[in-house]
Design a protein around this nucleic acid. Structure first.
Lengths: 147, 147
DNA sequence: CCTTGATCTCAAGTTAACTTTAGAAATTAG
DNA sequence: CTAATTTCTAAAGTTAACTTGAGATCAAGG
């Protein structure tokens, strides 16, 4: 094992499929070096990078946005503590926003349960906050956070 | 306008595209009657039904699960207050679960910001709660709630 | 050295949730 | 009644996020 991790190693460490890691590369999320044989060589920092991706995904962030966030980190050298702190803080803001949105919706629903949703005019479900109209084909942004 | 709403009316009322409403029909979410000319005729209750679908979707519920929830409601007649209350309560439980999951992750992240994510062994991002392995092709369940 | 396993690339398949298109028939507006 | 909308069906396209497959090459163990 010359330098760095193979894609298989990285797969074992992160739990991601090898194919997924290659796929992420095409989306600019990781940018491994190559050895003489043309095989990918990853650095230790890439484990953390991918872990961040996985965590962000469980929150519903689209890959495109995750990739943007990661643009702030150095591609081939280990990021500094300041780098990660900055990214993590931005992440926390998003989480807070989602918790707030869910809490708001829960409160509205409580009103709905009481009224039995019989009056359409004042129903919170009937009048959702901000409906974003159709924007072409493809799956919808289910979590409506992308802000 | 004989009886009921046309698909265009329903579209205007809910903000959903006509094509989306037809699509939902193929997935058992609405089951309109037909007039003499073969055009779909919806009842007033379908507005609420679709509103529920939209709200559930913003929470990240997949259509399949939403459809299941709606199986409890009568197809062609207006649902009773008890019907909606039951559905809404199940919905609230899901919301609570998601708020809890997000709060938990936020707490872990706070620890991460402090440590700068420099120790992989104890990093909450590196060791996510329960990673569900690959289960075939298609988009991943981003919100990880489907429970 | 040879075989087995890991990687490589590129193309095509998959799922979810819809949209778009096309040609035909029904409704509605004037 | 005619022109303009709306709706109908069925099939194909779209996006995201990956997986699967095929054929070739690289790497590691005995």
């Amino acid at each position: 094992m010359a330098t760095g991790l193979s894609i298989g190693d990285l797969s074992a460490r992160t739990g991601l499929a090898v194919s997924a890691i290659r796929f992420y590369e095409t989306h600019g999320i990781v940018a491994p070096l190559r050895n003489d044989g043309g095989h990918r060589r990853y650095g230790r920092a890439d484990i953390r990078r991918l872990s961040f991706v996985m965590a962000a995904q469980t929150l519903g962030f689209p890959l495109s946005e995750i990739a943007e966030n990661l643009q702030g980190l150095p591609a081939h050298k280990a990021p500094s503590k300041a780098d990660w702190t900055r990214i993590s803080k931005g992440f926390r803001v998003k989480i807070d926003a989602r918790i707030a949105a869910l809490t708001d919706l829960r409160d509205k629903l409580d009103g709905c349960i009481g009224c039995g949703c019989l009056s359409l005019q004042s129903c919170a479900l009937y009048n959702p906050q901000d409906v974003k109209g159709s924007e072409g084909a493809g799956p919808r942004n289910l979590t409506g956070l992308d802000g």
